[in-house]
Structure formats: C-alpha cells, structure tokens
Nucleic acid binder design. Structure first.
Lengths: 189, 189
DNA sequence: TATAATAACTAATCGGATTAGTTTTGTCAA
DNA sequence: TTGACAAAACTAATCCGATTAGTTATTATA
C-alpha cells in the first residue's frame, strides 16, 4: 500500500494540536492540511468529513486520558487512587483544551463506547469500597459530571481570572470523596 | 424608527427555538431568516454575525434561567431552596438543549457578567448557612460544575439510554447538600 | 517488471456567511 | 399634510471553506 507517510494517528495528532490552538469549533481542513503538508482534498483519503474528524478526536482524547489514568493508578488504591484519577483527567483537559472540548461536545450519538474507560476505572475504585450497589450508577455520574463540568467552566474562564482554580478543583474532589465515606458508614437511602 | 416588526428579543427567541431544534453548532442564518420571514442578509440589521448571535443566545439563556430561579425561590429557604434552584436549572437545560449548549460553550471571553445570576443566588443560599467564607468560592464552583456538567452529559446522552437520568441528578443534588451540612458542623479545613 | 490499490494533486462545484448598493417605509418636525 | 431622515428590508454579488470529480503518481506485491 502506497505513499503511507500519513496514517490516521498522525492526522489525529495534528488535528488535536490544531484544535488545542484554535478551539474545536474553529478547527478546519485548510490549516490541518497545511500542518500536514498536503492539500485539503487529500485529507479525504483519511477522514470522512470535518465533523466526523471532530468526533474521532473525541475517541482519541478518551483513549489518551484512559491510558494516562491507568498508568497513574499502578500500585495506588483507596482515596488516593480516586484523587489521582481526577487530577490526571483535569491535567489532561487543561493541557489539551481543544481535544477536551471534543470529548465534552461530541459525546453524542452513543456511537462510541470508548469514553467510558474513565467510568470503568471509577467504578472499580468504588467497588473496592462497601458502597451500596444501588448508589454506584449515581455516584459515577456525579463524579463524571463534576470532572467534565469543572474542566469545561475552567476552560471557558467562567471563573474570574483563573482565581485559585486548581484549589477549587481539589477542594471539590475532596468534598466528593468525603461524601463517599459518609456512604460507607451506611447512612443515606 | 421604521419597520420595527422585529426586535432583538424576537430574534433571540427564534434563534433559541431553532438552536433547540438543530443544536447550537448547526444554527444558521438561512433557517433563522426563514423562520422570521425575512432574507438572510436582513439579519445583519440586528446581529453582528452568526457567532456573535450564539454568544448573545448565551446571555439570553442565563437571563431566563436566573429569572425562573428567582421566581421559584419566593418564600422558600434552606435545603429546599437549593434543591429547587438546581431543579429549575436542570429543567431549563432539558427543555432548551440548544440554548443550554450556548450557555455552556460560549461562556468564554469573560464578556458577560450575566451568567452569574445563578451564582449570586447560590451564594445567597450558602450565606444563609454558617459555612466558612473561605469555602464559599469553592462550593459555588462545585455546584455550578455539577449542574452544567450533568446537564451537558445528559444532553449528549453520555448516560446509557436516559436510564434513570433524573434520579441520578437528584441523587447528586442531595449528595452535595448533605456535604454542606457536614461543613456547617464545623469539620473540614 | 506489470498491476492494482492507495493517496496525492488540480480543477470544479456547492452552499452559507457576509458585503455592497438600492429601495421601501415609518417617524417627526415644519 | 408633507418632505426628509433613519431604520430595516431587499437583491445582487463576493468570499471562502468543505466537498466532489477526475487525473496522476507511487509503492507493494505477484
């Protein structure tokens, strides 16, 4: 198979870098082609459409985050594991704003089962505690909502001048973890 | 002043309805003009650009949510007030997916001080409790992250087939409120 | 080495946002 | 009541990016 300078991964890398620079909504084929030293129409040998590329970028991001979290959790357990998973997610979102936007915006259509690598990891972490099974689903959604919500707001500078943003994030994570302990003790419905 | 059939508010109403139908990213002047019975270029008498319209839609949405929350809180206090504020927000997001997307995505640039009507309300609610002032900022961010994050994920069907979505949301709200009580008692740093 | 498949290229099309220039119409002062 | 102005709509034209059509180059393999 010919002229294989480019592959899907290189395209996604370049697209991700570009999205990080100019935001996912302004991502365009002209600049992407330029970055890859080809002409825009040539991109169609690798990509179905601009919009489809955006959703592939979503999967790419989730894969990366999932991998990084898995790495970060080797030999770690308990509260510390949850805390680290959250930190890794946040760091990734902060370092890759454009890719993160893709992850947050292009969840739709249920096409991708990938996104839930993070979910699976959080689930394992919860299972290691004696939290009622009935609460699990809700808790996972709570954590995920917080993580993505906070990252999104921070990204859009919804909080005045990055004022202690990281501290707020950590505060929230600790707050949630403290809530988990409350559950372990067996209160709550 | 002539031919004032249309005003900014009617435009935003129509744009909001259209965004709710086809999503904020697919919002376009052709369909908007059609809905208003004018030609696309005529829209420029009311709007700077499509992108600017999207960000105006953001302010419009925050105004509406703020108003609805204010209404819902008349004569209500304590946990119930917080709970209702959260419910109203969620309902609005669910009923107006397109406008909500605008609110979530177009926070950027710090142009708008509007969005924080919700924040101000939450703040008042927290002040009514004896929660350390130092925690206030973090808590507000936590709540806002959860609200927007959950609504966004639900909107994008990130949770398998709308499975008990509303229950999860309420669970999360109660979980957070319970955490507030923990703080009142004076634990925590 | 010939061939088939792949991927790049150029040229062309399509469609939507935006601009230019013109016309219509409602308001208001004389 | 009317004439002038301003606001807002219209049509025609432009721009630009995504996408398609059709062609050419390249490389792995038989």
């Amino acid at each position: 198979m010919p002229r294989s300078n480019l592959d899907k991964n290189k395209i996604l890398e370049a697209a991700g870098a570009l999205a990080n620079d100019i935001s996912i909504t302004k991502l365009n084929l002209k600049q992407l082609a330029q970055k890859l030293d080809i002409q825009p129409p040539s991109l169609y040998n690798h990509v179905q459409s601009l919009d489809h590329l955006r959703s592939e970028l979503m999967g790419y991001g989730w894969d990366q985050v999932g991998g990084r979290i898995a790495d970060a959790l080797i030999g770690v357990s308990g509260d510390e594991a949850i805390r680290r998973a959250c930190e890794v997610f946040y760091d990734y979102a902060e370092e890759n704003p454009g890719i993160f936007e893709a992850m947050a915006y292009y969840n739709r259509d249920g096409k991708n089962s990938e996104p839930d690598r993070l979910t699976r990891i959080l689930q394992k972490l919860c299972e290691a505690r004696d939290i009622p099974q009935a609460d699990m689903t809700h808790l996972l959604r709570l954590f995920r909502s917080y993580l993505e919500g906070f990252a999104l707001l921070a990204r859009h500078s919804a909080f005045p001048q990055g004022e202690a943003t990281r501290e707020s994030f950590d505060y929230g994570v600790d707050f949630l973890i403290a809530g988990l302990h409350r559950l372990e003790n067996g209160n709550e419905s």
